[in-house]
Design a protein around this nucleic acid. Structure first.
Lengths: 333, 333
DNA sequence: TTGTACGCGTTATCAT
DNA sequence: ATGATAACGCGTACAA
């Protein structure tokens, strides 16, 4: 690949002049500009980002750290959104290969070694030191689903609270008064805010809070199944179950069916995420749809803004969600 | 972040000596080595990959080009495999932001501008010029599911042919003699080799080939649904349907059910991919499982080998698959 | 065994 | 308007 020197020689000018043309400096005559551009075209020259980065101490690279990719159904959707936002932005996405088990792995060293301009962090909670390291180092960072902010760090998350609130409203309007809540571990923001939505919903509709109606279990089908089995044992069992994920909701539905009961006839079930399952399962699962694609897009837009503008105030973004009503919810018997 | 100069000053040696220590040269005394390493530790020094890359014309970066991420259910699984293989390899994965619509986008320019060491290409077929550009430029490349090879390019794909062949054997042993084939577009290797497996299976068991039993449709649920509707109209309808994807199989199953027939009672249905759906749907879907995680791992291992060894012969890898038997197949009536 | 000098491809500064 | 020169952080041939 031709270098800037080749172009300079070919055009009969200095390297400096070529650089000026590339970077749209004004102090170069139209005539030389044309000549240089012609040489660039002929030699199929492309500036070397690495060399440029060395002097500018930048890389036009957004680093990303993904943990537990496989267990998260949204990775591909989020990446699609990011890909769209990155297209023709001049930035590429650098998937950092981190060994999360290595105790002396340092994101900061990794990033500065590669001159990474900004970071996206997804699936890594506060229990890990990485987020705080990023915040302290004041490297431009956007967290997804981790409510951490700093001088150069913001975050984005779906509007979990309102999502569950809408679910509660939907169920209340159908006539449900005995509504249970099935969730995975509450340590992450997503879980916590969804639980808050549940509690707020109860208050709003003046329903009592029964701790027996709250089941914290594994964040998968089996977790949902077990949780529902417990709920079915209750003397005054709920007529509706709100789950914090579609997979848990599937487990719940199976438990209901296996107990000889029907969904939604005996018990209404609601999921969260609107994964592909939700529309395929029978009965179709009422659930909350988060626009992950949009989250991916916005993360990148915000991050680039943060990178390029030192005074940009790190945003806290809450992405709206939407209730998708299908067949798994109806009025109670 | 401290630079190599800082370390040299701190240790009271020249920059060269520090460099030699970093790169494990033998011509440095144990004493100075210790001294230098101590300084490195104290200053939390990390060599700058960008500067190093400028000198060595490398980047310790594997570029990846993903097209249509969202429509492919395997991205996250493959990326997990790649992530595992990349951990502690020293390489990071650079997700190239390509504008596929831009006619004068050039992978080669993009790669050489960033000194990308090798490329992984996934979801981009021969109808695009990108793969051939890579082959011609002799940039170390591994294609996934695109059977293209070159002096520095190889590919990896699941053993689609044997996968379908195993399915045919399974159905034949159950007693099926009228076996239909439902597939998406046959332009890609995956589709083509699966079709070859179907044909080979027919020959192997001395079954006739009926073109009416072959339905090419859209690669989604609706496609499967429509295909099955056509098959149901046949005077001598099949007793088993082999699909080239789980989603198409779901569509097929729905069409069977909607026609008042049963799976597997009236018609056995087989999918491909063993996506999460397969085990959740009722009846559970008999399908072929590809080990995408392993494909991801192997792609990276091979590519790194290719990058670091100029004489390494580009591999053609076929990843074994496994038949997962569930409830959607049984002996015909 | 250690260090000097140069080059990698680019941009910034300053002189012309 | 143009160019010579230094610098970015590092690797290496060669000299000492």
């Amino acid at each position: 690949m031709a270098s800037i020197t080749d172009v300079a020689k070919h055009a009969g000018v200095s390297v400096t002049t070529v650089s000026k043309v590339i970077n749209n400096y004004t102090d170069v005559s139209e005539k030389t500009r044309k000549k240089v551009n012609e040489s660039i075209r002929l030699l199929r020259y492309e500036p070397n980002v690495v060399a440029r980065g060395l002097v500018k101490k930048r890389s036009w690279t957004i680093g990303i750290l993904l943990h537990n990719i496989m267990t998260n159904p949204f990775v591909s959707e989020m990446m699609s959104g990011m890909q769209k936002a990155l297209a023709s932005s001049g930035y590429d996405l650098l998937h950092l290969s981190a060994n999360f088990n290595d105790p002396d792995y340092s994101v900061i060293r990794h990033c500065s070694s590669r001159n990474v301009d900004g970071m996206v962090v997804f699936g890594i909670g506060r229990d890990n030191k990485i987020p705080m390291d990023l915040v302290k180092a004041e490297l431009p960072t956007m967290f997804v689903d981790t409510d951490l902010i700093g001088r150069r760090a913001g975050y984005i998350t779906a509007d979990n609270r309102n999502g569950i609130l809408t679910v509660m409203e939907h169920l209340y309007n159908l006539g449900h008064r005995k509504i249970a809540f099935v969730s995975g571990y509450l340590g992450y923001v997503a879980g916590r805010t969804r639980f808050e939505g549940y509690q707020q919903g109860l208050r709003q509709f003046q329903l009592p809070y029964y701790s027996n109606y709250v089941e914290i279990s594994n964040f998968d089908m089996a977790g949902g199944y077990n949780a529902m089995q417990n709920l079915l044992k209750l003397p005054d069992r709920p007529t509706a179950v709100v789950c914090t994920s579609d997979v848990m909701a599937l487990g719940v539905m199976n438990a209901v069916t296996d107990a000889g009961l029907g969904v939604p006839g005996d018990i209404s079930v609601v999921g969260f995420d609107n994964t592909a399952f939700a529309s395929i399962v029978k009965p179709g699962l009422t659930t909350v749809s988060q626009n992950i694609f949009s989250i991916g897009e916005r993360v990148i837009h915000q991050l680039i803004e943060l990178v390029e503008n030192p005074d940009y105030s790190p945003p806290v973004l809450v992405e709206p969600v939407e209730l998708i009503i299908r067949e798994s919810t109806s009025a109670p018997r």
